[in-house]
Design a protein around this nucleic acid. Structure first.
Length: 554
RNA sequence: GCGCCUGUAGCUCAGAUGGAUAGAGCAACGGACUUCUAAUCCGUAGGUCGCAGGUUCGAAUCCUGCCAGGCGCGCCA
């Protein structure tokens, strides 16, 4: 519908030019929007204002020229008007809308999908938490955002791969091993001095107990280095398995789990450092090797190999990102916690040094989550090990509510997550409001089947009966859905989906309260059933992009 | 000190590329269930868009400077 209007405008502008009513063939992009107020029509364009400069004409005169050559779009429009500083408002013939319902029914799960991605290969890397402890709520937000972005992009025709990078190398892992080792000795009755820089959480004791009970009975008799290494491997594997399970329970799966250690084992880190040294981008200074990231926009150069010969995480991250592009991704999106924002400049520099364009690398920075209970902050401290895990939150409030809340805020804004609110079944917690639409419609369909209407097939005589204002409103909202998805993909803004769904849900609930779907009039009933079925499909599709379930009963 | 993010109704938040009278939900107040699920709906009230300048036909949106909060600024990860 919108693109038809756009075409009408372009044609009108060309004809106006040919007729001498416009002066320049330089036309701006034609933007058509749905005005906020119905009194401004179904669609509006600001074409005349945008064209004012190149046409050297007053906006309203351009608008007049446009309207004169516009016609009625083959009966699509009832009228057009010029308003305000030069808007052209379009009023669509109400009987033109219902056909869209059959389009939604036909396209079904594909309604809202598009091909704007043109098969471009995109990788979304998200969560990638270190395997040194369970996921907490903050990771949950990153998981919800990354997963949803991946779903939206895939729906828009991008070839998406989701990946989790496991930091299974380096000092943190060693510390993890040491922590478990010391707890194991402790459990074995040996007095130990547990250092403060080791991981304090109870899960470390659990891991030690598990290890001793299974493959680690001989642990206390091994020499320390070997025992720590074994503890590290056991603990990292076990925690990674737990993380994977927590994510599955949260509705998130990956195409690939990528091991940092593998980059060392394959020699990729070494190779890429050697190549960068050969090019002089990595240079020796005071015994350490530095990456000249300042040449590419960073505020200072960064160390990749320390004086003691150990590589930094940055070194393996460079090798990792080079590997991504070698695997053929045109575009790489990393989802990071906001506390890593200082890392963006150097990573971008590294990507550019590796021969990619800057815009092939994007970081989605997810702001922090403040966990509350009944308005009061829940204390979270990683150091003491007292933090609330993602699993605990999902167990308490449910995956649907948690995901919806994570995705209903722009990830650029810090998020207050109140456990009590997340459990409420009021409109304070809109996930149920949206799901309720799906359940209500399912209920109507069940009732219809009981009355012998089991196939809801569109036909024009039924569609013509959709004339109520609330019905046209609903159809117009359905018509907007594809562009909402497209916009969410372009702006990497998943939060637009839940906001759209809440709006659609509000329109449906209002309609439901005012009009009956099941009536004595067969054509009217079928028309309305088609409409609500279309609404149900869009709700389901939209919730699918958020990985929130669409229940038939509540 | 420097950098990034945030500041919109009492509360939680939307307002992409500058557009018409700044929108929802919650909370408050008043109404609607013998009818397809009341986890719903209808109505009322609620605003110096942090502050001050600037850019232009037009600014919550762009620019500059302040103010407030969060997070970063290691040869840590």
């Amino acid at each position: 519908m919108k693109s038809r209007i756009q075409t009408l405008i372009i044609n009108a502008a060309r004809e106006a030019l040919a007729a001498g009513a416009l002066t320049s063939n330089q036309f701006p992009d034609v933007l058509v929007e749905a005005p906020k107020s119905d009194s401004h029509g179904d669609f509006a364009t600001n074409f005349a204002m945008l064209a004012a400069k190149t046409q050297k004409m007053a906006p309203r005169r351009i608008a007049e020229a446009l309207v004169t050559h516009l016609g009625d779009g083959g009966g699509l429009l009832t009228r057009t008007e010029i308003a305000g500083p030069g808007f052209v408002n379009f009023f669509v013939r109400p009987t033109a809308w219902p056909a869209l319902v059959s389009q939604v029914l036909d396209q079904d799960r594909a309604y809202g999908a598009s091909a704007i991605g043109r098969g471009q290969k995109v990788q979304v890397e998200f969560v990638s938490a270190n395997p040194t402890g369970p996921l907490h709520v903050g990771h949950g937000r990153g998981a919800a955002v990354g997963d949803s972005v991946a779903r939206i992009l895939a729906h828009c025709g991008f070839d998406v791969q989701r990946e989790y990078y496991i930091n299974d190398s380096g000092r943190q892992i060693e510390t993890l091993g040491r922590s478990v080792y010391l707890r194991a000795l402790e459990l074995h009755g040996r007095p130990v001095d547990f250092p403060p820089d080791c991981y304090q959480g109870d899960y470390i004791r659990d891991l030690a107990r598990e290890l001793l009970a299974t493959e680690g009975a001989d642990l206390p008799s091994l020499d320390e280095a070997a025992a720590v290494a074994r503890c590290a491997r056991f603990a990292a594997d076990s925690i990674t398995t737990g993380i994977r399970q927590d994510l599955v329970d949260f509705g998130v799966t990956y195409d690939r789990w990528f091991s940092e250690q593998s980059l060392y084992d394959s020699g990729q880190v070494e190779q890429c450092l050697a190549a960068l040294k050969a090019r002089g981008i990595v240079y020796l200074h005071e015994g350490a090797w530095w990456f000249k990231t300042t040449a590419l926009g960073d505020e200072k150069d960064r160390v990749v190999v320390r004086q003691n010969g150990q590589t930094t995480y940055f070194a393996s991250d460079i090798a990792y990102h080079i590997d991504k592009y070698q695997r053929g991704f045109d575009r790489v999106i990393d989802v990071w916690g906001a506390d890593h924002h200082g890392y963006i400049a150097r990573m971008t520099a590294a990507v550019e040094a590796a021969g990619q364009r800057r815009d092939q690398f994007q970081v989605i920075l997810v702001q922090l989550v403040n966990l509350l209970r009944g308005g009061q902050p829940v204390a979270m401290s990683t150091r003491s090990g007292e933090f609330v895990t993602l699993k605990e939150v999902v167990d308490e409030v449910g995956a649907d509510a948690a995901r919806f809340i994570f995705l209903t805020r722009d990830y650029d804004s810090p998020l207050d997550f109140d456990l009590e609110v997340a459990k409420q079944k009021t409109n304070d917690n809109p996930v149920f409001y949206v799901q309720y639409v799906h359940a209500r419609i399912a209920s109507i369909l069940r009732k219809a089947a009981e009355q012998g209407i089991d196939s809801v097939a569109w036909h024009d005589t039924a569609g013509e009966r959709l004339v109520e204002a609330e019905e046209i409103q609903l159809i117009k909202a359905l018509a907007r859905y594809p562009e909402v998805v497209e916009m969410a993909a372009q702006a990497l803004a998943p939060h637009r989906i839940p906001y759209y769904l809440m709006q659609l849900a509000a329109l449906f609930h209002a309609y439901y309260n005012k009009h009956r779907v099941l009536t004595d009039d067969r054509d009217l009933t079928v028309g309305r059933l088609c409409l609500v079925l279309a609404v149900q499909k869009v709700i389901r599709n939209g919730l699918g992009l958020l990985a929130v379930s669409a229940p038939d009963q509540m």
